[in-house]
Deep mutational scan, measured.
Amino acid sequence: MALNTPQITPTKKITVRAIGEELPRGDYQRCPQCDMLFSLPEINSHQSAYCPRCQAKIRDGRDWSLTRLAAMAFTMLLLMPFAWGEPLLHIWLLGIRIDANVMQGIWQMTKQGDAITGSMVFFCVIGAPLILVTSIAYLWFGNRLGMNLRPVLLMLERLKEWVMLDIYLVGIGVASIKVQDYAHIQAGVGLFSFVALVILTTVTLSHLNVEELWERFYPQRPATRRDEKLRVCLGCHFTGYPDQRGRCPRCHIPLRLRRRHSLQKCWAALLASIVLLLPANLLPISIIYLNGGRQEDTILSGIMSLASSNIAVAGIVFIASILVPFTKVIVMFTLLLSIHFKCQQGLRTRILLLRMVTWIGRWSMLDLFVISLTMSLINRDQILAFTMGPAAFYFGAAVILTILAVEWLDSRLLWDAHESGNARFDD
């Protein structure tokens, strides 16, 4: 018995066209964080690309023209004298008006014999932002004059995390709450300039795509075929072959399989920071003279006294001054041990922890910024005066060393310790 099946006739004509040209192939790229070699397709503007294995951002879609970056830099340069030299806060102490600005706080630190601690604050609040705007201006002028731009481009990517104007702005709020127990506070004209400078700096850093600047100024022929001998440069993120001198053909720094002496430098910085954190938390970090009496505060006791007036601000200072430094030390110690013992479990967790400490590390400088600003506000000789204690130097040095330890660690070593050939990683 035959089955009668109805015929289905399409209502619209289906047209099949042959592909007349070869589909576009992607360029081969190595991930600078996990060293995976993959094919990167062509990316349009405002599109980002991520590593298929570790999800690290390979290409950032946010990109401004150099002219727009230069305009932002010149605007920031105009704001800087007002943000640093004009009063941020006014207080009335014992019937006398006192003005506080950024430069005055750094000068008070240096004047009291601790120039190293003052230079830490100076670099993060004044030096690094000033280098940022002058570097962008150098790129703008240098591109037109045919100057060598490689050193500036190499420095810009590392400079971003040292620009800490946003953290200093939080420190202004913390210092205001600490001082309000002794005097009446009012915002100064410099505060508005400083807030504007923070906003412009944040926007500029978020749109400063150094890798795209490398592509514009020093374009290189990408690798179009897969080759395990391809290496990625950690300076400019170019994937290719080393030249005859073993250097990256684009930025001219040595092109090595792994960062040289990464573990040794990381261990040295980490152990030194552990040693410095002990006096930083045991010795007094601030000293207040009130009517001839002397009151010393460690980091913890200062947080407890701050909690009596504002528990939320005390929580912020606790996280930045105690929780973050010790968390960074514990995480980095764990990561280094996992590399030495070739741990194969929990790779995803370790990668996330490394990215976390990379982002939060700079916030530990908050305590030094609060001390710097408070020193310029309260300084009335023996009637009422505020000065920093010996722990300030140890704390600042420990924070900087932990930042350097994270920067010096080559994250690809975590993958080397893991089993080879993993296309995915999980716990």
Rank of each mutant, 00 (worst) to 15 (best):
K342P: 11
V210A: 14
H252N: 05
T327N: 07
I177A: 05
N281K: 03
L153T: 14
V174L: 15
Q344R: 12
M356L: 12
F141T: 03
I126N: 11
L208C: 15
L69Y: 12
Y394L: 02
P129R: 00
F369P: 00
I8E: 06
E86L: 03
P41L: 06
F38C: 05
S411K: 10
I319K: 10
D426V: 07
K328S: 00
Q29E: 09
M304W: 11
T11F: 06
A196S: 13
T110G: 13
F425V: 13
V357Y: 00
D297S: 08
Q112T: 08
L323N: 03
R25H: 08
G173T: 06
I98E: 01
L300Q: 07
L276A: 14
L37D: 07
G346M: 13
D227E: 14
L149P: 10
L257K: 12
W162A: 02
G113D: 13
T239E: 01
W162L: 03
V125K: 07
R362V: 04
Y50C: 06
N379P: 01
L255R: 05
K178M: 01
L306E: 00
L276N: 12
L335D: 04
L409A: 04
L197A: 04
A73M: 13
A100V: 09
L278C: 13
A128S: 14
N209D: 10
A137H: 12
P81N: 08
V163N: 05
I136P: 01
A18H: 08
E215P: 13
L132Y: 05
E212M: 15
W408E: 06
F326Y: 04
P219T: 15
I299Q: 04
L384Y: 02
L77A: 12
Q244K: 14
N44D: 06
G293S: 12
C236D: 08
T110I: 04
L94Q: 00
D381G: 11
L276M: 12
G190H: 02
T110P: 08
C54W: 00
L276W: 11
H252V: 06
L290Y: 02
A307K: 15
L145A: 09
I311M: 14
A320R: 00
W64V: 12
T202H: 15
D243E: 13
I91D: 02
R247K: 07
A417C: 08
T202A: 10
Q295P: 05
F123N: 04
N310R: 15
L263P: 06
A71T: 08
I199D: 02
P254R: 01
C34F: 00
A320L: 15
E211K: 15
N101S: 09
L377V: 07
L154H: 11
D27F: 08
Q180T: 14
L77S: 13
T358Q: 12
L89M: 06
R68E: 03
A391F: 03
G389E: 01
L145P: 02
M375P: 01
L145S: 06
R256G: 12
L200G: 14
A307N: 14
P219H: 14
M332E: 09
S411W: 09
T134W: 11
G389D: 01
L263Q: 12
I43P: 03
I199Q: 08
L78Y: 04
D99K: 10
R53K: 08
I199P: 11
G292R: 11
L213E: 06
L37Y: 07
L149M: 09
A405E: 03
D381H: 04
F194I: 12
V16Y: 08
L368R: 00
M356F: 11
A398Y: 05
A268S: 11
S65E: 04
A405M: 01
G188L: 13
A397L: 04
R294G: 04
L94H: 00
E215L: 12
W408K: 03
S338L: 15
L354A: 11
R412D: 00
Q29H: 09
R97S: 13
S308Y: 10
M120G: 06
Q112S: 11
D410Y: 00
V313M: 14
L191S: 13
V232S: 14
K178L: 00
G113L: 14
T15G: 06
K229C: 12
V16K: 07
Y218E: 09
G127P: 04
I403P: 04
T5I: 05
R247W: 14
A49L: 07
I136N: 02
R59G: 07
M147L: 07
H184C: 02
G235P: 08
V317I: 15
W92G: 02
P249R: 08
L69P: 09
Q264T: 05
P390G: 07
G246C: 12
I58L: 06
E215A: 14
T402Q: 03
L159F: 02
I19Q: 09
T402S: 02
W408D: 04
T298Q: 14
W363F: 03
I98V: 05
L283H: 06
F341D: 06
Q108F: 14
K265M: 09
L132M: 07
I8T: 07
L323K: 13
R231S: 10
L276G: 11
V329Y: 03
V102N: 04
A385G: 05
G346D: 10
I383A: 03
L366R: 00
H46T: 07
Y168P: 04
R412C: 01
F333C: 11
H184G: 08
I274S: 14
L335P: 04
